[in-house]
Write a protein that binds this DNA or RNA. Sequence first.
DNA 1: CCGGGATTGTAGCGCTTTGTATCAGCTACG
DNA 2: CGTAGCTGATACAAAGCGCTACAATCCCGG
Lengths: 240, 240
Amino acid sequence: MNSLPHILVVDDHRQIRDSVTRFLERNGMRATAAKDAREMEEKLAKGHFDLMVLDVMMPGEDGLSICKRLSAEKRLPIIMLTALGQDQDRIVGLEIGADDYLPKPFNPRELLARIKAVLRRAPEERLEAGPLSGRILRFGGLTLDTDAHMLTDRDGNRVQLTTADFRLLTVLLARPRTVLSREQILDLTAGRAAGPLDRTIDNQISRLRRKIEMDPLRPTLITTVRSQGYSLNADVEVVE
Amino acid sequence: MNSLPHILVVDDHRQIRDSVTRFLERNGMRATAAKDAREMEEKLAKGHFDLMVLDVMMPGEDGLSICKRLSAEKRLPIIMLTALGQDQDRIVGLEIGADDYLPKPFNPRELLARIKAVLRRAPEERLEAGPLSGRILRFGGLTLDTDAHMLTDRDGNRVQLTTADFRLLTVLLARPRTVLSREQILDLTAGRAAGPLDRTIDNQISRLRRKIEMDPLRPTLITTVRSQGYSLNADVEVVE
DNA sequence: CCGGGATTGTAGCGCTTTGTATCAGCTACG
DNA sequence: CGTAGCTGATACAAAGCGCTACAATCCCGG
């Protein structure tokens, strides 16, 4: 994080929005407000945010729904606000993908402390789908043109990737040297959950290996971690 | 044998310790208990943990102090428990380096949800992403390519290691000339606790020796320390 | 709207890897 | 020497995974 952390505050109550953003700004953060889902999307599309504070009860698309949707695709930490102080609701908020939860009425200083806590454990910014697009990446001797979905191998041969190949590779490249479970990969590439006997990812990996491994029978780039998942074993360099 | 997240529960009340660990274990986690700071240090030194649940009010060194100390050096997510429900104390807990906070009395399900939320944010940094990854190591005349999981012996012969071989070897290489108990090794390689008649590690060692010892019948690299465990007898040099 | 090729999901076989049981040998210690 | 506790090795069964074949689906030009 080069500059101040940028927080997006989404709440339909003008007074809360304003007081929260002002409080955050007085305490070393940058804050932007949005009054509903539509405005939130607008701001999200325009700028970069490090964390979102989201009210559960809102007209239009409500907080829980937004949270579920966002935590599936984006990688933006979310803290939920709600008037419901019951355990049940708090649990739902967390299980749905929020990173933390704060019942109203809350002490602004506690919100600040929780924001800091979440930011502290937010992984350092990695290459994501966004920053990755339109770039040329080099890894393990191969070069990937993310615009053309085209791969160039060590000998300069060009390999055409299918969309599935490409998405899988992108997901792996965004998290080098990290073991990703099949469930995780399926979620990130296809956006769906795995069935009990789902071998889809095994298959995709197998197909991708045939295209990028020097010896597909003894893979080194994409290694299998038994009963855990797969991981990309290479350093990724952004060329352009 | 999925490697479950391992939680360390530190609380001086026996009843809370027991009920929490039991609850976590019934819900897909592995839990270990410690009754004070000393016992905590002991467990931390021996095994791998993904998260710690820490009581604030304890005799001896109290939770806040422990938390402050640990969050400075280690990178272990911490959730604090406390009987104080006041805002002030909650803030102190978070600002001091805890990743979350839960006032007693708490709903176990909420603790579980919060643990999951914190774990989701915490990138799993096990061996894969450890300091040894992406390196070439030399020890006792052998060379290990940690990317390819490939070993080259004195004569240049290449030996393919299975993932279990590799993880075991990595654990040993990270702590050369140190006696590791079977329990410790099992925790570090597979992330699980040993059963009473567990000979898994004996077996793994036996298999690994066949691949790396010059004379597997008279092992010199990996030596047995009777009724203690095993140790790697070589200097490890990072080549690249 | 249709047809054909490319791509992607599903099923299943068979190999490899790994955990458990068991036995036999070894060591320490009387 | 004899015994008890460890350890090493072998055998076996279960689980995980790679790969092939095939079915379903997508894509795109006509």
